[in-house]
Each structure stands twice: as structure tokens, then as C-alpha cells.
Design a protein around this nucleic acid. Structure first.
Lengths: 340, 340
DNA sequence: TTGAAAGCGCTAACAG
DNA sequence: CTGTTAGCGCTTTCAA
């Protein structure tokens, strides 16, 4: 038994031409019932599986999309991925996932690789929002959907979360509890999510006429360690904040570890609210209030946009989805000094 | 500008034959320096990227491996995946990841798809250990590495974790703290990890001459809810256990939630140790002691095995890696009644 | 050092 | 309903 039977082998065994076999494996119909059965039998007997490469070379489509994420270890992305995969499977699309470790250089390699493999489209959370390294994709007119982070250099469909609104609501909640000394652990300001979450923070302060105090604004890098570090810095201020807003999940975890090490008591001495829900949220006492993003929906929408774009190409306008995050109030935001 | 330049376009622009272009893009040497430069210039100018499908059809290899996991949302797998990807990238291999949602049916579809695409090998944590649905891979002599769960029907290389040893150590630790009424939240006994972790528990009891008590053995399904449920059952026993060993991460989480709801006090009233580390472990008071598996290493070893197998095929013996889990003692196992 | 040409396995147009 | 045939873009002899 030769290790890989091909369409020829099937044709020979079934005593037909390869064209007829091709019709059968592609369900094109117009084949005699008996012939079809004979062919099917031959296929089963040989364990024939069609060769995607050969087919691609003719068809110029692969039914495959590429997904690029910055960090597969961040639980946010597997959840988005699950949404993408689910929808993709329904449309008989296949998904290739690669992680860049936040490196634009690796990202460019992955992009090139995806193109070589002829992906029909790409869903990406880029490591570099200016998007220069995505030029290749753009030149080849391969549909792109940007998730969570925008791409500046080109017009692409986007699925973003309303970061400004989310952090506005979070900070507003703190304000309504009477807090005025509200600190923010920022994400990198050269990323859209990092910057927008800061903007929401600022906007909330402004709207409620609370003095913006630079000492309460410290930047992290979205990593756990930086959340830990920044919290220590906040604690060392002579005029400590009474509430902290953290810009993402990992920094929230770092912050909690710091609170613990510093014996800075959550809920009583310092209130807290974080962007993105985390596993530990409901195990802490008090439980953490958070702004939660609909990960699965993000993935589903992203695939849908990409799919439509693959089908209709340039005839579609640029589409921008802005999903709303949800404020989940648990117990980590207690009344501040001032009460309404 | 035509959207996808091919080797012909490059050849024409550089005024050479496609054969020479092929030599250059494959770094085969034996091309005049000047010619090569001319070709390279043409490639850059056109933004030419070679077509993997066409190449595959000739070469019969894709430099791609497939990875199949049962649940991408379980944090264990992205961590393993990160290890695989890292090593794969070093060897210029590309990784395709798909998740089966524990469905053997989906798994079979994925396998078929991987074969169509000509993957050079597959790393899999199967949803069905008997492995019938993997026959296709086996027939085509595509190298397989089984991770975390074995495959019974065929001889394949494996990267497993020493579950027996891990749970033995965990239970031993409880025993040495003076516990005798030790309960186990079992995983499904028809899975290797579930069964082996139970065996380790039994072995430890035997070795220390502690009576095996069936009331303390309750089975869950590796899901969070079942951990919650089982803990309630244990609590309702008239002779409650003084310590609990949970067989996996999600059931540990369920167990913690139950402890909380029942006001069954961790560390004092009941000790605890779990298989697999979890995020919340260090946030609880006392911190959770656990048996931890080396996820990244598992991924790295898995790729290495696969890579060697791709290179040397049948000339290699079956190889079985058994990685040791590590006992991480934090604080959730306090002294039991009896002291040594 | 370079080119011509024969396929790889498949699809699709055309002919019968 | 079925077969013949011309490629798809590339690699790889074999000759020049």
C-alpha cells in the first residue's frame, strides 16, 4: 500500500477518469448514482484524502484564515479564539493561530508565512499598531480584521471594545462611591487600549469636577510585574489614593499581590476596580469589581466580518464594531470619605 | 500591479529563467552573484512571496505541524502550546492549532483536515484515548506525539506527566502532616490522568498503612461544577475528612467555592492540596499547596520528539517521556490530629 | 552558471 | 453522464 493514494489511484480502482472522481469528491453532482458509489467505495478502500495543496493551486483559495495574537498565554486571547473557531467551523473555514510575543518582527514573519500558505484572510491583534509590517497583506489585497487594537496605516475592518466607555464607567463608579483620590495603573500609551482607558479615566474625573492629579497616574506595561510595581509606588505616596483603577487583567493581578504584601487592605483602606475580569476576582475578599469584555462575542464578530469581506471584497465599506464592556460590581469599591 | 506575482513574473523582470529564480529563493547557490542580485531586486520590487501550495505539491513536505488540544480555554494548553511554538519556530516549523472541545467527532474532522493540508506531524492531547479515529494518521505514517493522554491503539511517542508520583507526593504530604481521613476528588476513571491520580492516592495510603475508606473517594468529571458538588458531598458525611486532594485545576476551583459557601475553613478545619497550579492559589488564605506540572517543558519536549521523528521516521524506537510534577507547598495543609 | 522541460495532484472547460 | 486535456506555480533533472 503506497502511503498516499491520489486521485489517479482512485480513478483506476473505480475504473473511471480522474475528472469524475473530482466531481464526486467535490460534491458537484451530475454523476451516475452507481458510478458515484463505486468511486466512494474506492475512496474508502484506499483511504484517499484529497490534497489541499494541489487544490489550492488551482482554486486560489484555501478556506483557511490566519489568526495572530500577541500573547497566547494571556487568557483573553484563547477566549476570543474560541469564538472565532466556533464560527469558522460553521462556515467550513479552518483556523491557523500564531502568537507573536508582542514582537513586530515575529509578527512580520508570521504574516509572510500566512501569505505563502495562501490564507484567505487574517484576524489580528497587532503588536505594532502603525501597521507598516502589514503592508504585504494589504498589497496582496488579503482581507484583514483588526481585533482589540486598531491598525493605523490601512483601512481595515475592526472589532474594538469601547475602552473609553468601560473605564469611564469604572471610574464613575468609584466617584459615585465618594472617592476623589483615584489612581490609575495605565497601560502603554502608544497602544489604543492603553491610551483609551486612560482617556476614559480622565473624562470621568472631568465630568465630576475632580482634580486631575498626575501623581495618581502611573504607567505600566500590561504585565503582571508592572502592576505590582506601580501599586508599590502608589503606596509610597504621602497622600495615598483611596481607590485604584487598573487598566488590564495582568496588572490587576500584580496589584492584588502588592496589596497583599503591603497589607494595604482591599475594600476598606483602598477600593479597586479593574479592566477585564479575572479568575481570582471572586475569590478575594471582598470580591473584585471589574469591567468585563465579551471575549467570545469579539471572536464571533471578527470572524463574521472577515467572512463577509472574503466573500464581497472591496464592495464592502469599512466596518467598525465597537462592543460595549460590562461593569460588574462585586465588592471591592467601598464608600470613600465623601458621601453623596 | 497584479495582486499576486509569481515566479514567472520575477523571472521575466530579472531576465532569467524560472529555474534560476527558484535556485535563488531556495538558497541553493550556484548562481552568479550579479544574477542573484538582479533577481533579488526583482523579488523586492514585485513583493513576490513564494507559493507554499505549489512548493508542497512537489516537495511533499510542508514544514508544518498540527497541534490538537481538547480545550483551548483550559489555561494548561496555551502554556503547553507556547512551549511547542517556541521550539518549532527555532526549527522553522509552523504550527497549526485546533481545539476539539473534547469531541472525538470534531477531532476526527481536524485530523482529516490536517492530512489534507499535508502536515508533517501531529502533537495531540486526544479526546478519546482508544485512538480509533486516529487511524488515518497512522495509515499515512504521519508522525504523532501524544501529550498528557496516551493513545492506546497505536504505538506513538508520548510526553506524559508522572501522575501517580504527583498524587502520591501530594497525599504523602497530607499524611506526614498527620492526616488520616483524606478524601480524593477523582477525575473520570476512564482517562489516564484521572485513573493514575487515583492510583497515586491509593498507593500513598497503602504505604503508610492508612485504611482506604470508600466514602472518601468521590468521582468528578474534571469540571469546576463537579468539584463544587463533590465537596458538598464530603461535607455532608458524618465523619468528615480532615483533608482533601483534588485531581485537577478546575475541580480545585469548584472545591474552593464550596469551602467558602459551606464555611468549611481551609487550613484549619480541612486541609487541601490540588493537582495543577491555579491562578487563585496564592490569593487564598492560606495559600494553596499544589502539584504543579511543567507546561512549557511538556511543549518543548513534545516538539523535539516530533521533530526527530519527522527526520528519522521508523528508524526510531518508541520514546516515552515521563516528566515529574513538582510539589509546591504553600499553606493549605496544616497539621492533622495525629502528630509525628 | 543557466535554461528547457517534465511533472506534482488537482480543477474546470470543453467535447462527446 | 463521462472523459480528455490544459494548466495552476513550483522544483528538479538533464543538457547546454
Amino acid at each position: 500500500m503506497p502511503s498516499k493514494p491520489n486521485i489517479q489511484d482512485v480513478a483506476k480502482l473505480a475504473n473511471v477518469s480522474i475528472a469524475t472522481v473530482s466531481r464526486v469528491i467535490n460534491n458537484q453532482g451530475g454523476v451516475h448514482r452507481a458510478t458515484e458509489e463505486r468511486i466512494q467505495k474506492a475512496i474508502d478502500e484506499l483511504g484517499y484524502i484529497r490534497n489541499a495543496a494541489a487544490r489550492t493551486i488551482k482554486r486560489k483559495e484555501t478556506n483557511t484564515i490566519g489568526v495572530i495574537v500577541p500573547d497566547i498565554k494571556n487568557p483573553f486571547f484563547p477566549l476570543v479564539m474560541a469564538g472565532i473557531e466556533q464560527r469558522a467551523r460553521e462556515k467550513h473555514y479552518f483556523t491557523m493561530l500564531s502568537s507573536t510575543n508582542e514582537s513586530p518582527i515575529i509578527e512580520e514573519k508570521i504574516v509572510k508565512n500566512f501569505i505563502e500558505r495562501g490564507v484567505d484572510g487574517v484576524i489580528i491583534t497587532t503588536a505594532n499598531e502603525n501597521g507598516d509590517h502589514l503592508k504585504l497583506l494589504h498589497d496582496q489585497k488579503i482581507p484583514i480584521v483588526a481585533v482589540d487594537r486598531n491598525i493605523k496605516r490601512f483601512e481595515v475592518d475592526t472589532v474594538l471594545v469601547d475602552n473609553v466607555k468601560g473605564s469611564y464607567q469604572a471610574v464613575q463608579h468609584l466617584i459615585l462611591q465618594g472617592h476623589e483620590k483615584i489612581a490609575i495603573i495605565c497601560g502603554p500609551q502608544n497602544t489604543t487600549p492603553g491610551h483609551e482607558r486612560f482617556l476614559g479615566y480622565k473624562k470621568a474625573l472631568e465630568n465630576y469636577n475632580i482634580l486631575f492629579d498626575e501623581r495618581y497616574v502611573i504607567q505600566g506595561d500590561f504585565g503582571e510585574q508592572s502592576g505590582y510595581q506601580v501599586t508599590h509606588e502608589l503606596y509610597s505616596l504621602e497622600d495615598k489614593p483611596t481607590a485604584i483603577f487598573s487598566s488590564n487583567n495582568l496588572m490587576s493581578i500584580g496589584c492584588m499581590k502588592a496589596l497583599n504584601d503591603l497589607n494595604w487592605e482591599l475594600g476598606t483602606e483602598v477600593s479597586f476596580i479593574g479592566f477585564d475580569d479575572i479568575d481570582i476576582a471572586t475569590f478575594l475578599k471582598p470580591k473584585l469589581s471589574v469591567v468585563s469584555r465579551p471575549m467570545n462575542a469579539i471572536g464571533e464578530v471578527a470572524f463574521q466580518l472577515l467572512y463577509d469581506r472574503i466573500c464581497f471584497k472591496e464592495s464592502l465599506q469599512k466596518r467598525e464594531y465597537l462592543l460595549s464592556p460590562e461593569l460588574i460590581i462585586r465588592g471591592s469599591c467601598r464608600l470613600g470619605k465623601k458621601t453623596f
